[in-house]
Computed example of a mutant assay.
Amino acid sequence: MPGSSGTTVRGALRLTCPLYQVGTRVHRIWGALAGAGILAAVALVAFSPARWITRPLRTLGATTTQLAEGRLAPPPDATAGTPELRCLATAFTRTATRLQHLLKAQQAFASEASHQLKPPLTALRLRLENFEPHLDPRAHGSLEEAVGEVERLGRMVQGLLALARLENTATMPEPVDLDTVLAERAAMREPLAAGQYVALDITGPPVGPPAGHAWAIPSALEESVDNLLRFWRSSESHHDGTGLGLPIVRHLVDASGGTISLHPAPGTGLDARIRLRPVTGHRGDAH
């Protein structure tokens, strides 16, 4: 760089800068870019085989979810993937198909047996009741016990039919007006409760909105309330319980996406709590 004074050049300035540091940095950056490009190319090349290998696993996962919901359509493809995955898909399909056949056979047997038992039980009860005028008064107690056992068997058959209907029916939860259902069931059960010297009360917060709407499958709340009212379990070995009322309630509540818990009530009795999902998320759980 010339240094001048006017038109006269007095001297010159020379500045030297080595470029090996800049070159080294440029080479390092180009190496990193080349490595990233190679990795991207490898990932791109491996993407298709990876999807081909994992597709049967994804299919098996979706099929497992379907099987948990009680259906298997369509079955997983046993012709795709590695030999090990094809063998796994074949074994899974065979097991799931066998399980579905067993479940359908069990449901059909429970439903058919219940239907076949109803007429003989009804005829047996009528025959026992017709014996009453012709029996010695001292035998009336035994006759009443026999009629009671027939009635208990009839309730058990009704419970089996209800469970069979629940297993064979796949319905989705719908909005249910809790206040209306509770008021209707209490009104329907009032005469029976009064005959047993029991009062039915619907209680809740003294101030605030009504219970509102919750999600439940059709008729689930009505049947649950009916099975819980007047429900009782004797401490003695002989009692009128069939053991099917609470399983029916639990099945209905589970199918509705809710929960049920049973606790001893203060003093005596049973505290049964059913919690259902509210239709709107502004009031918390409806119970």
Rank of each mutant, 00 (worst) to 15 (best):
M1R: 08
T7R: 09
V9Y: 01
V9N: 07
R10L: 14
A12G: 02
L13G: 07
C17Y: 14
G23H: 07
G23N: 12
R25L: 13
H27Q: 11
R28G: 09
A32V: 15
I38G: 08
L39A: 15
V45L: 15
A46T: 13
I53V: 15
R55E: 14
L60V: 10
G61F: 02
T64L: 10
T65I: 06
L67A: 13
G70D: 03
R71M: 04
P75A: 11
P75F: 03
D77N: 15
D77F: 03
A80Q: 15
T82Y: 02
T82I: 08
P83C: 06
E84N: 05
E84P: 01
L85M: 15
C87H: 13
A89I: 01
F92P: 06
T95M: 07
T95P: 00
A96V: 06
A96N: 02
T97M: 07
L99I: 12
Q100K: 09
L103V: 12
Q106E: 15
A108D: 15
S111T: 11
A123D: 13
L126M: 07
E129C: 09
P133V: 05
P133K: 05
L135V: 13
L135W: 05
R138V: 15
R138M: 10
E144N: 09
G148E: 06
E151N: 14
M156W: 12
V157L: 00
V157C: 03
L160Y: 08
L160N: 15
T169N: 01
T171P: 00
P175N: 03
V181T: 15
A186F: 05
A194P: 00
Q196V: 04
D201M: 06
V207P: 00
V207F: 04
A214F: 00
L221A: 06
L221F: 10
E222Y: 06
L228T: 05
L229E: 07
L229P: 05
F231Q: 06
E236K: 12
S237G: 08
D240M: 10
G241R: 11
G243A: 09
P247N: 08
I248A: 10
V249Q: 04
D254I: 05
S261D: 14
L262I: 12
H263R: 13
P264S: 07
G267V: 08
L270H: 10
D271E: 12
L276G: 07
R277I: 12
T280P: 01
R283W: 01
